[in-house]
Simulated scan of single mutants.
Amino acid sequence: MKTRFARWLCASLLGLLLVGVALAVPLAGAAAGKGPPTPLLWKVSARDGSSLYLLGSFHLLKPDDYPLAPEVDAAFAKSTRVIFELPAEQVESPALAAQMLQAATRTDGRSLRDDLSPAQWSALQAYASGHGMSVEALAGYEAWFVGLSVSLAEMAAQGLDPSLGLDQHFMRQAASAGKPTGGLETAAEQIALLDGMSLEEQRQMLAEALDDASEGNQQTRALHDAWRAGDAKRMWSEMALDMKRQYPALYRNINVARNDRWVPKLERYLQPGQGTTLVVVGTLHLLGEDGVVEKLRARGYQVERVGAP
């Protein structure tokens, strides 16, 4: 099974997914009664008593993904601050969508059609025609943006909503409780990750988005189900390792390099007197040998999974 770019990004990037829904279709209704998701939650403790809760996010969720498990609510209650991938003020700023659109808009005098094979262009035409989109308008954007927009439209049709994502939920909770928040990187840095993709990677992203839409979005459901089940092993083995094998350069840029930049920033919150901090980031940043959890464990901190089945 191939890992779809946008599915992997759904558990990896935040800001781009929140503002890329301009082409999304209306949300579908969601079934209720599944019970709270099993949390992907770890506690990292320093010797002096300062600690981090690391919570794996899914950036688009459904109404029936709430309420959360009591362990997650307890971690929020114990924390004096909440840290996200992006600062809350950037996520909430109208300038974020403008930044993304500026990066995605073509300025080279070429059309998206020039970058695609005849078969890919025909597939995009068919998708646009069937979903009330203007293929001529899409032709003015980079392939990565169109691929991400198609994927987000399909996720929205399944009832997955960025406003219900775990990040947005805790941004609202922190604001209501008066808890300070912060970010590990900027919107400009996240946008540069996608805008810096090679043309081959962008074509692959768009082709897979169209292909997955035609197959009924099975991988999106599988990834969401694994997140709900708290199945860290499945998410790592079927999603992250697959991406690592197929797209090693992209995997290093989107996952490994960012994790390496985040770890020193997270260690600041483990210094004496920092108390307890809740960190909410894309789940795949926490998993496997390249994940933040293992990198902090390797630096000598005590790490334990909280609320595991």
Rank of each mutant, 00 (worst) to 15 (best):
Q271M: 11
T283P: 03
V306E: 07
Q102M: 04
G56Y: 04
Q120M: 07
L278I: 04
R305Q: 04
V82C: 13
Q173A: 15
R172E: 11
G159E: 07
P39I: 01
P26C: 03
Q218M: 01
D64A: 14
S214H: 05
A137R: 12
M1I: 03
E85W: 06
K43V: 03
E238M: 08
A226Q: 13
A156S: 15
A104V: 14
D290H: 09
H224F: 10
D225I: 00
G230F: 00
D260A: 11
A175T: 04
S122M: 13
A143E: 02
G216F: 08
A77C: 02
M239D: 14
K244S: 10
L160C: 13
V146R: 09
L184M: 04
L14A: 11
A123P: 01
L112E: 08
K2P: 15
F170W: 04
R47C: 14
E154L: 03
F170C: 10
P162V: 02
L184C: 04
V292E: 08
R234I: 09
D108E: 08
A97K: 15
L23S: 05
P37M: 09
V279N: 01
I83Y: 01
S12G: 07
P26M: 02
L9R: 12
V146I: 14
I83W: 06
L199C: 02
R228I: 02
S214I: 05
A188H: 09
Q204L: 14
D161Q: 10
L13A: 14
T105G: 04
Q302C: 03
G49H: 13
W42P: 00
G49E: 05
Q168D: 10
G275D: 05
K2C: 00
L52E: 07
R106L: 13
